[in-house]
């Protein structure tokens, strides 16, 4: 079964709109639970630097900056991929990297206009592929980071008709 079929079959039980994780950085307390739960759910390891969501923690100034993929309506990463490894999940519009197809070239990471810090799409530190937020398409409940955030700094946002 292709990833596209798998994604369509298992897709998060969400409405057919463009979805993305909206970040409200002003609510963030820098606890890092989102990074930890993301890495555990995706990799079985609590490891912030393979988390698909990133918290930049400036504890001196009490400022925390969250970054995660916007799941753009017209994504730059998808056409940039020479192997067609980034597929669009049909229900939520999540842009998912197909591990089988990704050749780790990094063109997607370069193409993404929001990836200056390298936190949106980035090379996996121990595998030969790039990773990015997939809205936890394999979970019926949707993105696990949204569920765990104790201050509701992460919200699952739907744009109606965003898929058209």
């Amino acid at each position: 079964m292709s990833l596209q079929d798998k994604a369509d079959n298992n897709a998060a039980d969400l409405p057919r709109h463009r979805c993305f994780v909206k970040v409200l950085s002003e609510r963030c307390r820098g606890c890092g639970l989102c990074e930890l739960v993301c890495s555990i759910c995706h990799e079985g390891e609590a490891r912030p630097n393979i988390s698909r969501i990133n918290v930049k923690k400036d504890r001196d100034n009490y400022q925390f900056k969250l970054s995660v993929c916007f799941q753009c309506k017209k994504p730059e990463c998808v056409p940039a991929c020479p192997t067609g490894a980034i597929i669009v999940e049909r229900k939520t519009g999540a842009k998912i990297v197909d591990e089988e197809l990704c050749n780790n070239c990094g063109l997607c990471a370069e193409a993404c206009p929001f990836n200056a810090d390298g936190h949106i799409i980035f090379p996996h530190p121990s595998k030969t592929l790039h990773v990015k937020c997939d809205l936890c398409f394999f979970r019926a409940g949707g993105p696990v980071c949204v569920e765990i955030c104790p201050t509701r700094a992460l919200v699952l946002k739907e744009i109606k008709g965003g898929m058209k």
């Binding site: 890495s39 990799e43 390891e45 609590a46 490891r47």
Partner: peptide, 25 residues
């Protein structure tokens, strides 16, 4: 450090954490 902490039973652990978070909210 850029490594991580490996979790023996990820799904069960996340569930245990969620329960702990809920209980201590």
């Amino acid at each position: 450090g850029s490594g991580g902490v490996k979790i023996a039973k990820p799904a069960k652990f996340v569930e245990a954490c969620r329960h702990a978070i809920e209980m201590s909210r």
